[in-house]
Amino acid sequence: MDVVRSRAFDFVETVRQLPDVASILDAMSRTLGQHGFDYFCSSYVAPLSTESPREAVLAERLPAGFLDMYSEAQYVWHDPALRYCRTTLQPFRWFREAPYDPEREPRAVELVRRARDFGMVDGVVIPVISPTGRTGQVWFGGAEIDLPERDLPALHLMALYAFDRVLKLRGLPAAPQHALSLREREVLTLAAVGRSSDEIADALAITRRTVKAHIKSCCKKLGAATRTQAVMIAMRDRIISP
């Protein structure tokens, strides 16, 4: 198991015991600081009609003054990364992969410039779906990110677990528990250590189609939107232990 993936599993075990949001942010810093991630934010992608932009933020460690500026300028309605979260569940590089039109979206251009003024030049966004169906995101950023693409799944796992733990600590609905069959637990355990569907099929002497069916069943039972989220929930609830 590579170093980043091992640290991701250690993070999951650590966060399980942490008593407050600040401790989660500290754990993120310890785990990811050496890769250039200095700032973190977990939020819903849009405030409800009864919320201010700040109230949609669940946890954050951002440069001093940035969140005040972001909220006062109402950038939440012009942020291309938040908009892109509504169209994908896959991790993406912050403004680099979130599409926007510089000519037609001057507020988006302004946001990118002002974020860089605060030292937030690069980042990775992990879209998430809350148990109530509300779209959210976990953002990891800094001035210079050094994380290979192959390690994004580990970051994805950390983000999903952190988001769910923050919901619990804030007294908001978190993912429910559901029983999995022995075979489903075997499939998720292999998925958790990075095995592909073909590799899982070979290891368990079943077809790739059957593997996908088990993953789909796990997602349905666990209330997960993706395979990675299903792994996170199963690890959190100690249904599996990679």
Rank of each mutant, 00 (worst) to 15 (best):
H156A: 10
R86W: 08
V231W: 01
L222S: 04
D117A: 14
L32F: 15
A224K: 03
E144G: 11
L67S: 03
C219A: 13
L169A: 08
D117E: 12
I145R: 08
M158I: 14
C85P: 07
Y161M: 13
T189P: 10
E105P: 05
V57G: 01
L152Y: 03
Y70N: 00
R96Y: 07
P19N: 11
A192F: 08
D68I: 00
S197R: 13
D2I: 05
D202R: 15
T14G: 13
R54W: 01
D38T: 09
F37L: 11
A213Y: 09
L182E: 13
I145G: 04
A205Y: 15
A230N: 07
A230F: 10
F163Q: 03
V15G: 11
R165Y: 07
V45I: 15
Y100H: 12
S217M: 11
A230L: 06
V138M: 07
F40R: 02
I206F: 15
R113K: 11
P47M: 11
V76K: 00
T228G: 11
R54D: 00
L222M: 10
I200W: 09
V187C: 09
T226E: 04
H78Y: 15
S181M: 05
C218I: 11
E199H: 07
V109C: 05
A56Y: 04
R107G: 01
T226N: 03
E105T: 10
L180V: 11
L89V: 08
E186Y: 14
A46T: 03
W139C: 06
E55K: 12
I240Y: 09
R93F: 13
L25A: 11
V187K: 10
F95R: 05
P153W: 04
P148S: 10
V124C: 12
I126E: 04
R208S: 13
Y100I: 09
G223R: 01
E144F: 15
R104T: 08
E105Q: 13
M28E: 11
I215H: 06
Q34H: 11
P242W: 13
K168Q: 08
L204I: 12
G141E: 09
V57S: 00
D164Y: 05
E103I: 12
R165I: 10
L25G: 09
L152C: 03
K221W: 05
P47A: 10
S181I: 07
I233E: 00
P242T: 12
D122P: 03
Q90V: 12
R134S: 03
A174N: 06
G194F: 04
D101C: 09
R16W: 14
S71M: 01
S181H: 07
R16H: 14
C41S: 04
V76H: 06
T189V: 10
D26C: 14
L32K: 04
Q177I: 13
K212H: 13
A159C: 09
S130C: 02
Y70F: 12
L32D: 08
R93N: 05
L18N: 04
G123R: 06
L155H: 02
V4L: 10
F66S: 02
Q34N: 07
S43D: 01
